[in-house]
């Protein structure tokens, strides 16, 4: 026997679920207004991190690894790490991992992929600094984001020149010794800079 179906009754939604109820958020508080020049949103820098970190690792890795789930998981984890903890340490870890992948996948003394991996790594380094210091809700003046662009162009230009020089040197016989000497010179330069990290620059007061 078919039991009669009870008519469908629409229950009154609880007060919290009604439009405008306390379940919905109140209107946000007003912001303190500051008059500045043109600005960029702070969330652009995590986006820039994502757009540089994943391609950096994927390009440096051997092409055969791109189908492996383990590598893709590791890539996603490292990208998420640098997104969630945007510190200089995590950016350095990502660069070091990129170097390791390049070491594994490269087949010659100078892999041509390094010509664009180096600028991409530098972009990741700078985007991570901005993401570490600027919350996604903050604003950054366009002039501030572009401050020091000349220095960045010089640095990247010098890097590319070094790459071209290294590429030329590696084609000559006996290049291994030259590479070793160059690397040692750079290491010595870094070592000389390390003691400055202990203290800060003296400050001369405003007066």
């Amino acid at each position: 026997m078919n039991t009669p179906r009870r008519p469908h009754r629409r229950r009154t939604p609880p007060a919290d679920a009604r439009p405008g109820g306390p379940g919905l958020r109140d209107a946000p508080l007003p912001r303190v207004t500051t008059t500045t020049g043109p600005t960029l949103p702070g969330w652009l820098f995590p986006l820039a991190q994502t757009l540089t970190a994943a391609p950096l690792l994927a390009t440096a890795a051997p092409t055969t690894w791109l189908d492996h789930g383990l590598f893709l998981t590791t890539l996603a984890a490292l990208t998420a790490l640098v997104l969630l903890r945007p510190t200089a340490g995590t950016a350095g870890l990502l660069l070091t991992t990129t170097g390791a992948l390049l070491w594994i996948s490269g087949d010659g003394p100078l892999d041509p992929r390094a010509l664009w991996l180096a600028p991409t790594g530098y972009l990741l380094w700078r985007a991570t600094w901005w993401a570490a210091h600027v919350p996604p809700t903050a604003r950054v003046e366009t002039a501030a984001a572009l401050a020091g662009w000349r220095r960045a162009v010089v640095v990247l230009g010098a890097t590319e020149l070094l790459a071209v020089a290294a590429w030329a040197v590696t084609t000559l016989p006996g290049a291994g010794a030259a590479i070793l000497v160059g690397a040692l010179a750079l290491a010595a330069l870094t070592f000389l800079a390390l003691p400055r990290d202990a203290g800060g620059a003296p400050v001369r007061g405003p007066g």
């Binding site: 350095g92 660069l95 070091t96 990129t98 170097g99 390791a100 390049l102 070491w103 490269g106 003394p109 100078l110 892999d111 992929r113 390094a114 991996l117 180096a118 600028p119 790594g121 530098y122 380094w125 220095r151 960045a152 640095v155 990247l156 010098a158 890097t159 070094l162 790459a163 290294a166 040197v169 590696t170 291994g176 590479i179 070793l180 160059g182 690397a183 040692l184 750079l186 290491a187 330069l189 870094t190």
Partner: peptide, 24 residues
């Protein structure tokens, strides 16, 4: 670290990754 890896592997391309960070 990158320079050390480049030295060990005799790979100047790895050292290139360190150059812009060090220069800055």
């Amino acid at each position: 670290v990158l320079l050390a890896a480049a030295t060990l592997a005799a790979r100047p391309d790895i050292a290139l990754l360190a150059v812009p960070v060090l220069l800055t």
